[in-house]
Computed example of a mutant assay.
Amino acid sequence: MTATDPLVPALAGLVVDAVWFLESCGDDEVDPDSTVKMMEGVGGELLRLPLDQRDRLLQVLTDLAEVEPDPARREFLESFPSACGLVEEQ
């Protein structure tokens, strides 16, 4: 895959949107235990990425946030790395 491959940003955006959906659902929409399991699974898989791929993901998330017109999604994109444990909380 090349650095300009559109697949990586598209997949990163989908992962972020899925986690955002899970976080925003009420207990009556999605079972809270299932939400926690899914979010822990996503975070765990991302942490298992080799360091160079994790760095690439972090750059893709930064790039997505910079061009995101929706302020709420931009904020979530910016907070996603620390929420998933990819970086230390600031």
Rank of each mutant, 00 (worst) to 15 (best):
L64S: 01
T2D: 15
E78W: 09
T62I: 07
R56L: 09
T62P: 04
V42S: 07
C25Q: 12
P32Y: 07
D63G: 06
E66W: 14
G85L: 05
V87N: 07
V67C: 04
L49H: 03
R73I: 05
A10D: 09
D28C: 09
P6D: 04
V15N: 04
G85E: 05
V16F: 06
F80P: 00
D17V: 08
A12H: 02
E23L: 10
L46A: 06
P81K: 05
W20C: 10
C25A: 13
R56Q: 11
L77D: 06
L86Y: 03
F80E: 01
L51C: 07
R54Q: 06
P50I: 03
V60K: 02
L86T: 05
V67K: 10
G85T: 02
P6S: 02
D33K: 13
G41N: 05
E45F: 10
L58R: 01
W20P: 08
R56A: 12
P50G: 03
E45L: 15
L49F: 00
C25R: 15
T35K: 15
A72C: 11
A65G: 06
P69K: 00
D63A: 14
G13E: 07
L61M: 03
V36H: 11
E89F: 12
L57M: 07
G85Y: 05
T62E: 12
T2R: 14
R54D: 01
G41R: 00
T4H: 13
T4W: 06
F76H: 09
A12K: 03
E75S: 13
D31P: 05
G26T: 10
P81F: 02
V60G: 01
F21Q: 13
E40N: 12
P69L: 02
E75N: 10
G85W: 07
D27N: 15
F80A: 03
M1K: 10
S79P: 04
A10I: 10
L14R: 14
E89Y: 11
L61E: 03
E29C: 10
G13Q: 08
E23W: 05
G13I: 07
V67I: 13
R54L: 04
F21Y: 12
R54M: 01
V16I: 10
V15S: 02
R48C: 10
V19C: 11
P9M: 07
V67A: 07
S82C: 12
T4M: 12
G26R: 15
D17C: 14
D52P: 07
P69R: 01
D27L: 09
C25Y: 11
S34Y: 11
F76E: 01
L61V: 08
S79T: 14
D70H: 08
S82Q: 14
D52S: 09
L49G: 05
E88H: 15
W20V: 09
D52I: 06
P32M: 04
D17L: 08
Q90H: 13
A3P: 08
F76G: 00
P50K: 01
P81W: 04
G13Y: 08
